[in-house]
């Protein structure tokens, strides 16, 4: 049997592919692109929230936000490790991020203007991420699936704490309610763009579905997310900023308005409100951390030599 046929048979039988198994080059490349992009998103995703750690309104909120941002660092690390099993080095991935060659989720190129944004990021941005990530726990590549199981276990607190922030604001003063509604208005459309381009404009999707890297299409997941949020927003007593959003009995889904795809492509191509700021922050962290990486290497080497001498 052809190698490619054996590979596809395994996929069809729901047998996971592991690092040393034969795989088509395109499968490897697609996974490297998707997993590294995902890892970069976790790392860059720490920045908009990091912005509010020092200004959280209470010690409780501050501790929670710190824990959430720390989780995101951890999620980035799980995913980088998974990508490394495909034969790309950590430094190569970092270089691709810093040079702009690798992308990250466009949502993180929007600014976090108020405390309510922390609530909305948890509810909508993490909510959309979870919707994407849960099916990835069954993705065909073993190390990626295992990383996602870990991520999903931890992610659910992120969404719940976000909703709790909004719930608290919804019971607050007029100013607080206004702040929360404003945050929802700004983040709603970028959040539903997180599912990626429409199915007929997503050329990689067909192969990804055949290889069971993806299990649901962009539009399926987006619809599911909109259906869930349209109900959840009622609990808050706020609204989603879409006049065309209404229940369609026949389809059994919510209809929604037209997404501004021009904005989506603009942000992906680097013209979002914070693209430069985010990348500059990552470059600064990489450059200013260089002496630490080197010092630790030198120290480890010194100790190694010392130990060798002692043994000899």
């Amino acid at each position: 049997m052809e190698l490619e046929q054996i590979f596809q048979d395994k996929i069809d039988k729901e047998i996971r592919i592991e690092p040393k198994d034969w795989m088509p080059e395109k499968y490897r490349q697609t996974l490297i692109r998707q997993i590294s992009q995902h890892a970069h998103s976790e790392i860059v995703g720490m920045l908009p929230e990091g912005n509010w750690i020092t200004r959280a309104p209470s010690l409780r909120r501050k501790a929670i936000l710190l824990a959430k941002v720390q989780d995101e660092a951890g999620h980035g690390l799980y995913l980088y490790s998974a990508a490394e099993t495909l034969g790309i080095s950590r430094d190569e991935m970092t270089a691709q991020l810093l040079s702009g060659k690798a992308k990250y989720s466009s949502i993180f190129n929007y600014p976090t203007l108020s405390w309510a944004d922390m609530g909305v990021i948890g509810w909508l941005v993490d909510g959309a991420a979870i919707m994407n990530q849960v099916p990835l726990c069954r993705t065909s590549y073993g190390p990626y699936a295992r990383a996602m199981v870990r991520v999903c276990k931890e992610e659910s607190f992120h969404q719940r704490q976000g909703f709790e922030i909004l719930l608290t604001l919804s019971k607050g003063t007029d100013a607080q309610r206004k702040m929360a509604q404003d945050a929802i208005n700004r983040w709603w459309w970028p959040s539903i763009m997180m599912f990626g381009p429409k199915d007929d404009e997503s050329p990689n999707s067909v192969l990804s579905m055949k290889w069971k890297i993806k299990r649901f299409s962009n539009d399926e997941l987006r619809q599911k997310f909109i259906d869930v949020c349209a109900e959840q927003v009622k609990v808050l007593g706020f609204t989603l900023p879409d006049p065309d959003l209404k229940w369609n009995e026949e389809r059994g889904h919510y209809d929604f308005g037209t997404i501004n795809w021009d904005e989506f492509w603009q942000v992906i191509q680097g013209n979002g409100p914070c693209n430069k700021e985010r990348l500059d922050a990552r470059k600064k962290a990489w450059e200013e951390g260089a002496w630490v990486r080197e010092a630790a290497t030198a120290y480890a080497e010194k100790k190694r030599v010392k130990n060798t001498l002692r043994v000899a």
Partner: peptide, 21 residues
Amino acid sequence: GSLHAADAAMAIENARDVYTR
């Protein structure tokens, strides 16, 4: 899972932070 570290002591500390939060 796996992680990067300069030496074993750092690997254990990083493992604590990454895998046992």
